[in-house]
């Protein structure tokens, strides 16, 4: 069981690299949706059955697999952009940095002691690596859509960490956190729609009217 979980985590790490390495926005959105689905399935593998668990899984699958990707795709369609043209950090350097960050995450995770039931599992390093990659995307891309994608990747990383706490954490917090993130992204989506209407582009590098001269 745990071996399967590890393989799924590796899959989600791969998704990180896909997102880092591609310029096609629609492709990254789908990849992130896949990551969300993979992560949504994970709890079923490591935790015993409970209604609480079912609720989380369904919530995850719906939110990360369907609603959010659909919303972002919608935004892409409206703004009529397909590609991230001028990333702040190029795709090859992004991949290299992503690899570096992933390695760093493994080092960091190995420095900190884990509970015995999590030792030998990829949860903590994968979570760290995904968060760092999310950060990297946020820093490396200029377009608002890419940044939402980066934020989603980061969220996924945090979610992985949350998984190892899921059975111990009360439902209310979990659900609240999920709901909040969902609403957060949802509001971002609305704002993106407004941006595309106002600027006819989702390039956040154009959003630099507010600055100090």
């Amino acid at each position: 069981m745990n071996a399967l979980a590890d393989q799924l985590l590796v899959l989600s790490l791969l998704v990180n690299f896909i997102v880092l390495g591609t310029s096609r926005l629609a492709f990254s959105v789908r990849a992130v949706a896949l990551q969300g689905v993979v992560l949504g399935v994970l709890p079923a593998l490591i935790h015993p059955f409970s209604w609480h668990l079912v609720a989380i899984i369904i919530g995850m699958l719906l939110a990360k697999g369907l609603v959010i990707p659909w919303m972002i795709m919608n935004a892409i369609r409206q703004a009529e952009i397909r590609r991230e043209i001028e990333p702040f950090i190029g795709f090859i350097p992004s991949l290299v940095l992503g690899a570096l960050f992933t390695a760093l995450a493994f080092v960091f995770a190995s420095k900190l002691p884990l509970a015995p039931e999590h030792e030998g599992l990829l949860f903590v390093p994968a979570s760290m690596a995904t968060i760092m990659c999310g950060f990297l995307i946020l820093m490396a891309r200029r377009k608002a859509i890419s940044q939402v994608i980066g934020y989603l990747v980061m969220e996924n990383g945090i979610f992985i960490f949350g998984l190892i706490l899921a059975d111990a954490m009360p439902l209310m917090v979990e659900a609240g956190a999920l709901l909040d993130l969902l609403v957060g992204v949802f509001v971002m989506g609305i704002v993106m729609n407004h941006i595309s209407r106002e600027f006819s582009s989702l390039d956040t590098s154009r959003l630099t009217a507010l600055r100090e001269d």
Partner: peptide
């Protein structure tokens, strides 16, 4: 020093990082 506030959101994320 005021150029640090250049209006580019992705660099702001970099500050946090």
């Amino acid at each position: 020093c005021r150029r640090l506030q250049h209006g580019q959101a992705h660099i702001y994320v970099l500050y946090i990082f």
